[in-house]
Design a protein around this nucleic acid. Structure first.
Lengths: 293, 293
DNA sequence: TAATGTATTTCATCTGCAATTAAGACAATC
DNA sequence: GATTGTCTTAATTGCAGATGAAATACATTA
């Protein structure tokens, strides 16, 4: 078994997620075709994923009898999909740009050399950045950044934009929250509140935050609202992976989120809308001391 | 002189625009380096563009003495940059999808065959569609459309989204309209109103419309608002290149636009905001008989 | 000396081929 | 009869070289 492909790694992880969601325990039988269908791929990559899980001792293959779950790792102990080279480069690039280490204009070659990427990877990277309106093609050769590093106006513009959209998600006619999603969100927030704060919590805190706002946008039933919020998250993900306001602000943030969930669940959508507006208002007043957004 | 590259064609066109904006007339001298700098490219493609213009008899090259403008075509007679193969395929694909001729899921090969595109072109096409959230990659091989053809909900969602954002552009703190832009917009609207309506006017009507809304979004000074509106235009451009409501509605549309321009210019931003909301409201009530959006 | 003309270098794209890898069909087994 | 194992086919990606184009440096001329 050489190295599993990215798809195979992802599938391995999602297989464990499925098993957990189904409440399977050691000894349970796993059906290949069913899993393949649920994951929307053919059996081939699923098989490869299982081969990998077998290497790691999590399942056993019994000839002609299929797969047996040996042990179920905890959610946090999952393979933790190794980050993609492009993702890493993306975050590095965003930071270096903010630090002023990158010129306004640059060539594709520079990117390949600096971040040690192949051509296809570099292409994906630039496509992502262009999608986020961070860069654009120059008319001839080369690219340029679309905003100055550490532009203080961006912060306000972002929050003003979010305040236009996010409070309105609750008032869309098709707004409907999935109870399961609410429960999961509550749990994640309570977990964040009860666990001691560590530096490494910052990423999962960010992702919880992003999932909260994106989930609400999805619940609006308006795909354009959803897209816009998702895009905001993608943008923020590049620069805000650290949290510099301390645990105190984490608590405030979580409590505000929980209140919004309560209101929305109770059907007080106007209240939820106002709470969301105030939440964003308060968040917008936090300004990073390092000038990042 | 073989075929000029796309960049060279575009530059040729923009060179004429520059000359027109500068009020140059036949006999005027054109400085290569200055033009190259203004167009943000090197002299090389500018030279090629001039070679092409010379072929078409619009300029003359005097050895070591540079370029001389021979005649200035009217704005509408410009080269009219020939549409890109990808653009064409994009529009065709959007139409065929709406007509239900394309499956929900498809492979890249299918696209290449059906639209007779090379690999790089097909890649660009799919990247554009993915950027607009029209398609997404399946986990393994292949792609899928993200919405059903002729989904009637999209129409309402789009207008609800636009009504959240566009009326607020006027109320952004940095809102500032360029007087030159206002004048140009007025002129284009009056031209549309005074010219007889032809089928072929639909495209330029659409583009005028798009430029109107995008220009206002840009004037808001909020780059996220601007991005969102631009994206809406790109999406609409794929399906709304024809106009099925007759000249009567064109007139209404233009007059509403002109009113908004008047209010904004006079500084009545709250009024402009309300007018924009009503404008979108009215527009949202127009529904295409063919079920397209 | 500032502009144009020319040559060189760098960059980006395109093309075809090889290597992976997923999808789909069929056979074997419980 | 359903599920797993095996094989074949088709699709996708990656790579290297060739081509085309733009940027840059330098020479030349008014």
């Amino acid at each position: 078994m050489s190295q599993p492909s990215r798809l195979q790694q992802d599938l391995a992880e999602r297989i464990l997620d499925l098993a957990r969601d189904d409440g399977l325990t050691a000894g349970a039988h796993l059906n290949e075709s069913v899993i393949a269908r649920r994951l929307d791929v053919s059996r081939t990559p699923v098989r490869a994923a299982f081969a990998w899980l077998e290497d790691r001792g999590l399942v056993r293959r019994n000839p002609h009898r299929g797969l047996e779950l040996i042990s179920m790792p905890r959610a946090s102990e999952n393979g933790a999909s190794p980050p993609d080279a492009v993702e890493l480069a993306l975050v590095r690039l965003a930071h270096e740009r903010e630090a002023g280490e990158l010129d306004n204009e640059f060539s594709e070659q520079e990117i390949m050399r600096r971040y040690e990427l192949g051509r296809p990877e570099m292409k994906r990277l630039l496509a992502r950045l262009a999608d986020l309106d961070m860069v654009e093609r120059k008319p001839g050769y080369g690219w340029r950044f679309l905003q100055e590093p550490r532009d203080p106006r961006v912060h306000d513009e972002r929050y003003r934009f979010r305040m236009l959209i996010e409070p309105m998600t609750f008032l869309e006619p098709g707004f409907a929250l999935d109870p399961g999603w609410i429960a999961e969100m509550r749990e994640r927030h309570h977990a964040t509140l009860s666990q001691p704060w560590r530096e490494t919590s910052a990423i999962s805190f960010f992702e919880m935050n992003a999932a909260f706002h994106e989930g609400l946008a999805a619940a609006s039933g308006n795909r354009f609202i959803h897209s816009a919020v998702r895009r905001q998250n993608q943008l923020r993900r590049l620069s805000n992976y650290d949290w510099v306001f301390g645990f105190e602000r984490v608590e405030v943030n979580c409590r505000e989120h929980l209140q919004i969930l309560d209101s929305a669940e109770a059907g007080d959508l106007e209240v939820a809308s106002v709470q969301m507006r105030r939440h964003l208002q308060r968040a917008s007043r936090l300004r990073r001391p390092d000038g990042l957004d």
